[in-house]
Computed example of a mutant assay.
Amino acid sequence: MPPRIRLLATTTAPLGALAYSASRGVRCYAGKAKKPAASSDAEKPTAVDDDAIDLNKVARDEFNEWMSGPGRNFKKPLYNEMNYITSYDRKTWQRLGTDKDKLNVPFPLNHAFRSHPVLSEELKEEIYSRVMEGGNSVRAVSAGLGVSLERVAAVARLKAVEKEWIKEGKPIATYLTKALHTMLPVTQLSPKGQTQTFHEGLQDMQSHQFSHRQAFVPVSESRIFTRADAGKEFGLPPTEESVPHPDLIVLQREKFAGLDNTARVDMQRERDRQAMVRREEKERKEKERKEKSGQVIEKGRWAWRLTTATTGRVGFRYGVPHQDRKKGQVKIPTRVL
């Protein structure tokens, strides 16, 4: 193994380059570095000047100067408005106006990203009231208030836990919700008689794994290839049946067909009645199946099913031990069946 060459402690830094001083342990800026005059002088190392500038101190001074100037706008959040760095003019540091869509750009280098709004407390209370107190289905509340199915179910469950904690006297941490409402866009509950603003898209559908493959299907020019045909090729139902709210598509089709509002409401009520009948029938069958299978006792996360049995007629699974672990037992077959 060849001997190692000991490196010099100082290196030659060109004009305007960064150097590291081992004695001071700080990053310094070599302001003036002499150029090698001759070949003999080029081999000699050039040390960093004693009056080098500490970049850490420069960065701290610039940060403190910025915080005492434009940075004062970001020390405290604005109530009911987004307070991002893109909400100000980078030259004059004045607000760009009142357009919430232009102000809702948290990342300066990604103008396509928008902060997702959060639900207001009034809207959460309305969701809880309709689901838990009014007895409406999660699907109906989701379609009426413009909130996804998963979010409606989550709000109903969390609100139930919150009210139970308040009844028990447990402390509720509401400061986080209040802070989020001051820094993010909020979806408010519309007054009665006005159309509720949708919180999010309701018809977003997850990509099924069956649709990830390619399928080449020869189709004649005279044939109309629909979404139902495409779903059949992948073994999936049509898109209008797979979305979370297929009834909204039916309502839109009836609107395009020219039906008046009264007829559409009556048809929707009939569909809701039929859906309720199907749900009750399903619950009745599930209850009958549980009753036939035996009595079920639930304790927390455990459930026991009790069935009637005749004393003395216990099968091989109950009370008869296996002979596999006993000594002297022949465990290989000794005869042909």
Rank of each mutant, 00 (worst) to 15 (best):
245 H>D: 10
212 H>N: 15
16 G>N: 07
38 A>H: 08
280 E>A: 14
25 G>P: 05
28 C>V: 14
223 R>W: 11
33 A>V: 02
25 G>D: 13
268 Q>V: 06
298 E>P: 01
298 E>V: 14
100 K>Q: 14
331 K>G: 09
200 E>Y: 10
63 F>R: 15
295 Q>I: 03
120 S>V: 03
247 D>Q: 02
79 Y>S: 12
260 D>H: 01
25 G>I: 04
217 V>R: 06
332 I>H: 01
203 Q>T: 03
61 D>Q: 09
102 K>R: 15
243 V>W: 02
64 N>D: 08
225 F>Q: 11
218 P>C: 00
21 S>Q: 03
242 S>G: 06
300 G>L: 11
220 S>Q: 08
107 F>C: 13
96 L>C: 10
270 E>M: 07
280 E>F: 09
270 E>H: 06
99 D>I: 06
120 S>H: 02
335 R>D: 08
250 V>H: 03
64 N>H: 07
45 P>R: 13
206 Q>Y: 14
13 A>Y: 07
76 K>D: 04
181 H>E: 14
226 T>R: 15
141 V>D: 04
306 L>W: 07
190 S>Q: 03
220 S>H: 07
119 L>I: 14
137 S>I: 02
68 S>T: 11
8 L>V: 04
45 P>Y: 10
23 S>D: 13
199 H>L: 08
188 Q>S: 12
181 H>S: 04
240 E>G: 01
317 R>A: 13
110 N>I: 15
82 M>P: 01
206 Q>N: 14
94 Q>D: 05
192 K>T: 06
89 D>E: 13
242 S>M: 12
184 L>I: 15
193 G>Y: 00
274 Q>I: 11
259 L>Q: 08
134 G>D: 13
266 D>A: 14
333 P>V: 01
254 E>A: 11
237 P>G: 07
31 G>C: 11
132 M>R: 12
99 D>P: 09
9 A>C: 08
54 D>N: 15
317 R>K: 13
87 S>N: 08
166 I>E: 14
273 R>C: 10
47 A>N: 01
134 G>T: 13
227 R>E: 07
149 L>A: 03
138 V>D: 05
225 F>M: 14
311 T>C: 00
124 K>A: 03
30 A>L: 03
266 D>N: 12
222 S>F: 08
250 V>T: 13
306 L>N: 05
15 L>T: 04
218 P>Y: 00
51 D>Q: 12
97 G>N: 06
20 Y>Q: 03
56 N>P: 00
78 L>K: 02
295 Q>T: 07
307 T>D: 01
268 Q>K: 12
219 V>P: 03
301 R>C: 00
66 W>A: 12
336 V>C: 12
184 L>G: 06
118 V>G: 01
155 V>E: 01
239 T>E: 05
93 W>D: 09
221 E>N: 07
149 L>T: 13
291 E>I: 04
227 R>Q: 05
228 A>W: 05
132 M>E: 12
253 R>H: 15
193 G>S: 08
83 N>F: 07
264 R>I: 15
293 S>M: 15
12 T>C: 06
262 T>N: 11
326 K>Q: 15
135 G>L: 05
81 E>T: 03
